[in-house]
Amino acid sequence: MTPGAYVLEYHLVNYRRTWRASALSTLVMPLLTMLGFGVGVGAYVSGGVDGVPYLDWIVPGLIASTAVQAAIGEATWPVLSYFEWLKVYFAQAAAPLRVADILGGHLAFMLFRILLSATAFLGVAVLFGAVHSWWAPLTLIVALLVGFAVSAPTVAYSASISSDSYLAILMRFAILPMSLFSGVFFPIESLPLVLRWVAWALPLWHGVDLSRDAMLGLAPGWLGLWHVLYLLAWCALGWWLAHSRFRRRLVI
């Protein structure tokens, strides 16, 4: 086993102690969103979107969005607290682990949490009869990709701040606009050009579009390849930023 795997194991042991508190929200959140938007709003969207019923159209977007929410949840307060309050990272740095092990182990745990949330959502969607394609499980891979593309740079951000008021800024000015304008609830074509750029620039829309292709059984085409490459670029840049921030904090 590589040292990074020991760090993942640590986070899993920790999670075993706390999972009950988060399990309910992991299952209840998709249920509520599905009822509220899919069924509630969907009743007003007669004729569906792009030729599919609104519920079927919105579910893949919600899965990608859920993955991103899980990524944000794990990449903000826990990271800040491991540096500032609980000092967990410093305890790990005193052990024979490298910065890449400490960061990689924690990111691997975040991927686990992302996969858990996305799978729960997909399961609920199946119960609602909103899944029709055999390609649907691919949406979990997409969830991991977009989840990492968001969590890695967010970890870098959380590692750069010393107070959680900066997290409120992140939520308000980055996460909220991204969640609203990334084609989760309505196609980005209905947005003014400026806001469409927001969708193009940030990771979520790329994940939503890929997820939708998978769930509806559509061919992603060249645009799909572009999405994957763009998300991989976010992953790589995010890792690089997070690694240099961690280095700065842990090796001083």
Partner: peptide, 21 residues
């Protein structure tokens, strides 16, 4: 002290030991 407050006393030692393989 930077102990793990979520873990119990024994787990604090066993999880840390794992970092040493």
């Amino acid at each position: 002290d930077n102990l793990d407050i979520e873990l119990n006393v024994r787990e604090n030692l066993t999880t840390y030991a794992r970092f040493f393989g």
